[in-house]
Amino acid sequence: MAPITTASNEETHAALLDTLDMYKIHKPFRNPNWKPPQRRNKNLKQILSEAQRAQQSMLNTQQNSGATTPTPATDGTNTPALNPNPEKMSQDLGRLVLEKNAKQSNGISTPMAGTGFTGPSVTYTSIAAAPSLKPKKKYCDITGLPAKYKDPKSGLYYYNAEIYAVVKSLSTTQVQEYLAARGANTVLK
């Protein structure tokens, strides 16, 4: 219980601790019967893989049952070229109806409805930017200056002879540290 400011002493700090504490405050608006689901804290990887699995199983059942709803006519105006993920375009009629409802209720006429609003293909993963197509510029791993040279042994880029002397003197862990800054380090699994 270390106070961080020099202005406070033990006593005032304890008092402050008491006033700031949110635990003891009664929260009448909370549902007393609420039980949070177990293990609800998931990281991005878990969520994505679960979502993918769910989607896959749904696709399978739909294909097997033959219950796929035919694509409505409105969807036909989509230009396939504009859709980055045509195979992901789920033919969920419910969703389309919903979309229509939303548009009507919003009172917005969407002149671009056919071109842009492709809908379900947009997922968290699909909007991630693709790798760059341009050549990567190389920068000195130590100083950040534009680098012309690369040490073949460690794989570090360096700016000039003076930096090369430093590169040579680095230990393996230091080399890995520098490489990790640009994600080129060796990761053992």
């Binding site: 859709n83 917005i108 969407t110 671009m112 842009g116």
Partner: peptide, 20 residues
């Protein structure tokens, strides 16, 4: 970082891109 094109107040979400 997100880039979202908007046309006539309607976002073209299909063309939106995220840079992490």
């Amino acid at each position: 970082t997100h880039l979202i094109p908007v046309v006539n107040r309607q976002p073209l979400i299909a063309h939106a891109t995220r840079l992490d």
